[in-house]
């Protein structure tokens, strides 16, 4: 799991939302409701795929904006944060 702008790389698990992984690693993560409804946490993916915790859908294309609070890593993920 890599945060490209803050230049941090961490080894995260595949069950914890990216928002929490980022915050725990000290990255300044935008957020709001923390439950997938406000879109205050969206961030662009540079590479990798994420899983939507609500639907289990795996998605992610370069440049796609994902909600970090309800997404977990499905592969190695790079986020532009």
């Amino acid at each position: 799991m890599r945060f490209t702008r803050s230049g941090r790389t961490i080894a995260g698990d595949q069950a914890t939302p990216l928002l929490i992984l980022g915050e725990d690693a000290g990255v300044v993560m935008p957020s709001g409701c923390r439950m997938g409804i406000c879109f205050g946490c969206v961030a662009p993916v540079r590479s990798g795929q994420v899983r939507d915790l609500r639907t289990n859908q795996v998605h992610g294309e370069a440049g796609e904006l994902i909600q970090t609070c309800i997404s977990t890593a499905a592969t190695d993920v790079e986020l532009e944060l």
């Binding site: 069950a15 914890t16 939302p17 928002l19 929490i20 923390r34 439950m35 915790l53 609070c69 309800i70």
Partner: peptide
């Protein structure tokens, strides 16, 4: 209360 989706 912290995050309904956190499964940790």
């Amino acid at each position: 209360a912290v995050a309904p989706y956190a499964m940790a």
